[in-house]
Simulated scan of single mutants.
Amino acid sequence: MPYTTEDGGRLNNFANEPKVYQADPPNKNEKRNYVIWGALAVILLGGVVTIAFYASNV
């Protein structure tokens, strides 16, 4: 387990912080994929709600 050393030589048992980095914005291809996956999710959810609605009215 990694320890950090504070001022005065005391050991600290807390986790080390991960390195922070800047995320790259999505490109055109990734944006298109997000739209496709979002549309598929909406269609799937709509289908499940429709089936549940008709099944509850039987």
Rank of each mutant, 00 (worst) to 15 (best):
V42K: 06
R32H: 15
V58P: 11
E17H: 07
V42Y: 07
I51F: 10
W37N: 13
I51P: 08
K31R: 14
G38T: 06
G8C: 07
N29H: 02
N57P: 11
G9R: 00
F14P: 03
V49G: 11
G46P: 13
F53L: 10
V20K: 04
P18S: 01
D24T: 11
L45I: 15
L44T: 15
F14V: 01
Q22M: 01
F53E: 05
D24Y: 03
T5L: 10
W37P: 10
I36N: 14
V48T: 08
W37K: 12
N33W: 07
Y21T: 05
A15T: 10
A52T: 13
I51W: 13
V42H: 06
R32F: 11
A55W: 01
V20F: 01
I51K: 12
V35F: 07
W37A: 11
V49Q: 07
N33T: 15
A55Y: 00
D24Q: 11
N57E: 03
L44A: 15
M1F: 15
K31A: 05
A15Y: 10
P2T: 13
A15P: 15
M1V: 12
N27Q: 06
K19Q: 12
P18H: 00
A39T: 14
M1K: 12
V48D: 02
L44V: 13
I51L: 08
P26Y: 02
V42Q: 02
G47F: 09
N16R: 05
V49W: 04
V20L: 03
E6Q: 13
Q22R: 00
A41G: 15
T50H: 04
I51E: 02
A55N: 05
G47Q: 08
N13P: 15
G9K: 00
D7T: 05
L45Q: 06
G46I: 03
E17I: 01
G47E: 03
N57A: 07
I36M: 09
R10A: 10
R32L: 07
N29A: 00
N12S: 09
L44E: 03
G8V: 04
Y54P: 12
V48Q: 06
P2V: 10
Y34H: 04
V42L: 08
A39V: 15
T5D: 09
L45R: 09
N13R: 07
N33S: 06
I36R: 11
G9V: 06
V35M: 03
